[in-house]
């Protein structure tokens, strides 16, 4: 576990946003909005909370993360690379032919990815399996699972929720990236999730809500969720899609951007409002 100060984390997050935007723009297209909404959450998990060994990604006692909204791969890749799971030079290969960093996460390609995901709704079931296995194996690791709000339309999410509640998987902490937008529009307009917290309570989860961009709130809420006994935890993270890049922030179109030429690239990089040196 890392002991970075909030200021240092803030600086790191700024760099991550810069790299994520560059990676996706280089690739020519990608899920920028849903990656940027998770920067503080994924950074906090890996830098301040999760028990991991970058030099040994398969360490059996590590905490696990299932990125069920697998299309947010870029935010996980940048964090894993900076922690040393693989060289930072890989980052510029996102979605290139032969890459180890596909748009949707793949545990057979990328060190540090705990579960392949991409077809929405499936990762939470897998996370339940990992959490159940920990109980059977008498292991004390936690399983974190990040789901999308749009993903929560999937019936399998609720099958898994019913299972986790029934089996009292208190080593399972689910985080919903509630940026309130999905591909076709605002979640409230496509198919509303509300009352979201009540839904999860009804499925026998201990429910928390947090500001998904506030370092202290994220840290303290996840720590509270970890201590819950006898039931799984759901953290509804209020986030902003495309956070930190003015070109896409809080815009539905940020879900999957297309970059056709240099001026598109310049536009999205300019949206960050700062320049940095890329690590590759």
């Amino acid at each position: 576990m890392n002991t970075m100060s909030t200021e240092q984390l803030e600086q790191r997050a700024k760099e991550f946003r810069y790299v994520i935007t560059d990676m996706i723009c280089r690739a020519g297209s990608g899920h920028l909005g849903g990656s940027l909404s998770l920067v503080e959450i994924v950074t906090t998990l890996y830098y301040r909370i999760m028990n991991i060994k970058p030099e040994n990604p398969a360490w059996e006692d590590r905490d696990r993360l299932v990125l069920s909204k697998g299309h947010a791969g870029p935010v996980l890749y940048v964090v894993l690379a900076y922690l040393g799971f693989f060289p930072k030079s890989w980052l510029k290969t996102l979605n290139q032919n032969g890459t180890n960093l596909p748009s949707h996460v793949d545990h057979n390609k990328t060190p540090g990815i705990d579960m392949t995901a991409g077809s929405l709704g499936q990762g939470l079931s897998c996370a339940c399996g990992m959490a159940y296995a920990a109980k059977l194996n008498k292991k004390s690791y936690n399983v974190f699972c990040i789901i999308g709000d749009g993903e929560s339309n999937e019936g399998q999410i609720w099958e898994a929720a019913m299972f986790a509640g029934h089996n009292k998987l208190d080593n399972l902490i689910v985080i919903c990236d509630y940026n309130k937008m999905q591909i076709d529009g605002k979640t409230d307009e496509v198919v509303t999730l509300e009352p979201l917290a009540d839904k999860w309570r009804a499925f026998n989860f201990e429910v928390f809500e947090m500001d998904g961009h506030n370092w202290d709130d994220i840290y303290s809420t996840i720590n509270k969720a970890i201590t819950v006994k006898g039931k799984p935890a759901m953290i509804i993270a209020h986030t902003i899609k495309g956070k930190g890049n003015a070109e896409v922030e809080n815009k539905v179109a940020s879900h999957n951007i297309k970059i056709n030429n240099q001026s598109d690239y310049d536009k999205y990089m300019k949206g960050l409002g700062y320049t940095m040196t890329l690590p590759y």
Binding site: D114, Q156, E159, F163
Partner: peptide
């Protein structure tokens, strides 16, 4: 009994659950 898991009428969850269990050596 420890090796027996009934997920209810939820086959999709059963397969995902199995995949997660298998990732842990089950």
């Amino acid at each position: 009994p420890e090796n027996f898991i009934n997920v209810g009428v939820a086959e999709a969850n059963m397969i995902g659950l199995a995949a997660g269990l298998a990732r842990e050596g089950k």
